[in-house]
Simulated assay, not measured.
Amino acid sequence: MLDDTDRRILRQLLADPVADSAELARRANVAPATLWRRLDRLRARGILRGVEARIDWRALGYAVEVSLRFTLDKTEPRAFDAFTAAARQVPEVIELQSFLGSVDVRLSVIARDMGDWQRIYRDRILPLPHVTDIEPLMLVSTIKDTGELAL
């Protein structure tokens, strides 16, 4: 699937995603033309989907992050679709995931402070449709936050 050259390129890209192509090629020990061909091939195969910006929400004044686990009404056939459509409209929702098991959906919600969180919860979260149970988990600290995997 991946050869050693692909792995070197991906490791260097993960280590410094904003490095220019010449620097990335140098670090991966390949010619710039080889780097571009390899990156194009990795994109075409769906392995490399793009480069994304990671925002530190705390640096922008969002001091509170809450993970909310929802159980939805299983008797309503359109519950999932209606819930996710409504949840996508909440500006403070930064992540929306679905699961198999007793929890159907998880949202990550950010707020500036506890007063802001209470307003968001009362005005935007509680009115979400087809909810049978909500379990909020307040983030205390992030111990590991990486998309890296040994290549």
Rank of each mutant, 00 (worst) to 15 (best):
M1T: 11
L2I: 04
L2H: 07
L2D: 02
D3C: 07
T5H: 01
T5Q: 06
R7N: 04
R7C: 00
R8Y: 01
L10F: 01
R11Y: 04
R11Q: 13
L13E: 05
L13V: 08
P17R: 11
P17N: 12
A19E: 08
D20V: 10
D20L: 09
D20A: 10
D20E: 14
D20M: 09
S21F: 13
S21W: 11
E23N: 14
R26E: 14
R26P: 02
R27K: 15
A28E: 08
V30H: 02
V30M: 09
A31R: 14
T34E: 10
L35T: 07
W36G: 10
W36K: 13
L39K: 14
D40H: 15
R43M: 04
G46E: 00
I47Y: 12
L48W: 06
G50T: 09
E52M: 13
E52L: 13
D56P: 07
R58G: 09
A59V: 00
G61T: 00
Y62P: 04
L68D: 03
L68T: 05
L68G: 05
R69V: 02
T71K: 13
T71F: 05
L72P: 04
L72Q: 05
D73R: 11
K74T: 12
K74Q: 14
T75K: 12
A79G: 00
A82K: 07
A86I: 06
A86P: 00
R88M: 11
E95K: 14
Q97R: 15
L100K: 10
D104F: 09
L107P: 02
S108G: 06
V109H: 06
V109P: 03
I110P: 06
D113L: 10
D113V: 03
G115C: 08
G115P: 03
D116G: 00
D116W: 05
R119Q: 14
I120A: 01
R122I: 05
D123V: 04
R124K: 15
P127V: 07
L128W: 03
L128C: 06
H130L: 07
H130Q: 03
V131Y: 03
V131W: 04
T132M: 12
D133Q: 13
I134P: 08
P136F: 12
L139D: 06
V140Y: 13
I143L: 15
K144H: 07
D145G: 01
D145S: 11
T146Y: 04
T146C: 03
A150N: 11
